[in-house]
Design a protein around this nucleic acid. Structure first.
Lengths: 132, 132
DNA sequence: GATACTGGTTACCTCAACGATACCGGGATA
DNA sequence: TATCCCGGTATCGTTGAGGTAACCAGTATC
């Protein structure tokens, strides 16, 4: 048996939402990370992706399937069982995701600090002219 | 004098729009690339970014300035002159952009082929059951 | 019969990004 | 007087990603 996914895997309040890098659509990178350890079921994916609605998860998975990032396997049992698994192509995104994570670890605090500093200082006149 | 930017630098019909990686907003990565060689003026940036409207370019640059990716320097001459330049933080995005470009070079054709193949094959029933 | 489980679907709505178009202010130049 | 240049603004409209809420089919179990 595979280990269950950690429900705290992704923090909804994490500043990564400010990260200037995005892989695929909003949830794509998180799905890839969830599938890194092996195939997962639909309901299983919903746990760490707190807040995702079934509609949006379906959309995300269908788009990823269309692009050859995941495969979908349905087992005719009941209750029904469907498993999603990364393809080689999908797995190739992991290096990119790692690069994005490294960038964030190294530079996101700087960006957030710049943003914070900017918010608290009113924008100066576009052209600084000598006072009359 | 710095070399002018190549008007053909970015192809509007380039499949990179299908690229599952995005840096910042739609134009951010292109602006970073334009600024790689040194400071550029507003009007100068509009050339390779064919089709960008001044409003959107302003929005993009303001957001980048807020996040500490570029600096804006206005010279009180006329006609007015304003120069945008990458900060160290902005420059740090270049490695990420290169990683994204490498991924695209290596894998985007595969993705596009998967997509093309998928479009031409109707989605099978979600659960394959034996025919009655 | 009622209820639960899985893996969805459907209709509707909201909001932000993006784009099209027009206009502006100040100085230099003709 | 008129026109051009530069670096923008102002206003409006479109589009699509994403979210909310409700519903569904088939089977099993109570």
């Amino acid at each position: 048996m595979v280990e269950p996914l950690d429900p705290e895997m992704f923090d909804p309040v994490c500043p990564s939402s400010a990260m200037p890098i995005q892989i695929g659509d909003k949830w794509t990178a998180m799905v890839v990370i969830c599938l890194e350890g092996g195939p997962r079921r639909f309901t299983e994916l919903r746990v760490p992706l707190r807040g995702i609605t079934p509609k949006v998860l379906t959309q995300t998975l269908r788009a990823m399937e269309r692009d050859g990032l995941v495969t979908r396997t349905a087992y005719d049992e009941n209750p029904p069982r469907v498993e999603y698994e990364l393809t080689t192509l999908g797995r190739s995104l992991l290096t990119l995701i790692d690069a994005a994570r490294s960038w964030s670890r190294d530079h996101l605090p700087t960006l957030l600090e710049a943003r914070r500093a900017h918010e608290s200082t009113p924008r100066p006149a576009l052209l600084q002219r000598p006072a009359p």
